[in-house]
Design a protein around this nucleic acid. Structure first.
Lengths: 146, 146
DNA sequence: GCAGATTCGTTGCTTGTGTAATAGTTGGTT
DNA sequence: AACCAACTATTACACAAGCAACGAATCTGC
C-alpha cells in the first residue's frame, strides 16, 4: 500500500531546515551584497575577524567550519577591497595573519548592527515560541549529525 | 566601545540555520547520491512526483518554491535515467506532464523510508526538546521572511 | 642534516546556480 | 484574422562552489 502511504516533505527536517535557511539567508544577503558587494563567505570571514581580531586562515577554518578554499577566495576579495590586511608570519612563513582595516571594522560594525536587528525581527516573528530552544536545537543539529 | 561589544555569531539565526541545514543536508545527500546518483534538486523533484503523482514543471515550482531552471535541469536528468516520463499535454502543448516510472517509484519509496528513519534519528538526537515546536518555527521562518 | 610526512594556503577544473534572453504556444482584443 | 500580452519550459552566459592537485614551508624521526 505504498502509494497511499503519505509523506510530508514539509515536515522533513533537512528539507525544512534548508527552506528556512535559504529564506533567511536571502534576506540577509541582500544587505551585505547591496551595501558592500560582499558574498556569503565574505561576510562570514569578516565577522570572524570582527569578533576575534587577528586570525590566520586556518584559525578561521577551525572556528567556522568553512572550507579552506572558500576562505582563501573570500580573503582574496576582502583584501582587494581593502577590508582586511594580510601579514605574513615571520616564524612560519606559510601562515598569514589577517586583520580588518578601519574600513573593514566599520563594515563589520554596520553589518553587526543590522544582523542584530534582523535577528530580533525573526525572533519577534516567532511570537510566543521558545526562540532559545530553537537556537539550542539548531546548534545541536549543526554540530555534526552523523 | 564597539570593540568590546561582543556578537555571538553562533546564535545568529540565519547563520545557525545554515549550519544546521548544511549538516543535515550533507548527511542525507550521501544517501541519494550514493544510491541513485541524484543531486539535491533531483530528489526534491522525485519526492514531489512521488507524493503527488502526475505534475507539470510549474506545478512542482508552485509547490516547492524551487526555481524553474533547477526543475528543468533536474527533470532532464531524471528523465535520462528513466526515473520519470515526460508527456506533453495535447490541449496545451507548452505543458509537459511528469510522472514517475516504476523505477522512479521504487527509488522514491526507498528514499522515503530512509528519510523517515533519518528524520526520526534527528528527532531522537534532540532528546527532550520539543521537535514539533521546532518544525513549527522552521515552517514559519521558511514562508517568506521579509 | 636529510627524507618523508604534514601543514598552509592557492589554483585548475568540473559542476551547479541565477539572471536574463529565448523559442514556442495560447488566449484575449480589436 | 492579426496582433499583443502572458505563460511554459529551455538555454546561454557569467559567476560561485567543491574537489583534487599543487607548491612552498615546516616538522619529525633517524
Amino acid at each position: 500500500m505504498a502509494d497511499t502511504d503519505i509523506f510530508d516533505l514539509q515536515a522533513f527536517l533537512p528539507y525544512l531546515l534548508n527552506q528556512a535557511a535559504e529564506a533567511s539567508s536571502l534576506d540577509f544577503q541582500s544587505v551585505y551584497k547591496s551595501r558592500y558587494g560582499m558574498l556569503r563567505n565574505e561576510w562570514r570571514v569578516l565577522f570572524h575577524l570582527g569578533m576575534y581580531g587577528r586570525l590566520s586562515a586556518s584559525e578561521i577554518r577551525d572556528r567556522s567550519g568553512l572550507h579552506k578554499t572558500k576562505i582563501s577566495r573570500a580573503v582574496q576579495r576582502l583584501a582587494e577591497r581593502r577590508f582586511l590586511t594580510r601579514d605574513r608570519d615571520i616564524k612560519d612563513r606559510r601562515t598569514e595573519h589577517l586583520e580588518l582595516t578601519a574600513q573593514g571594522q566599520a563594515a563589520y560594525r554596520d553589518l553587526r548592527k543590522i544582523a542584530r536587528e534582523y535577528d530580533a525581527a525573526l525572533a519577534e516573528m516567532l511570537g510566543d515560541e521558545d526562540v532559545a530552544a530553537l537556537r539550542r536545537m539548531l546548534q545541536r543539529l549543526a554540530q555534526r549529525v552523523s
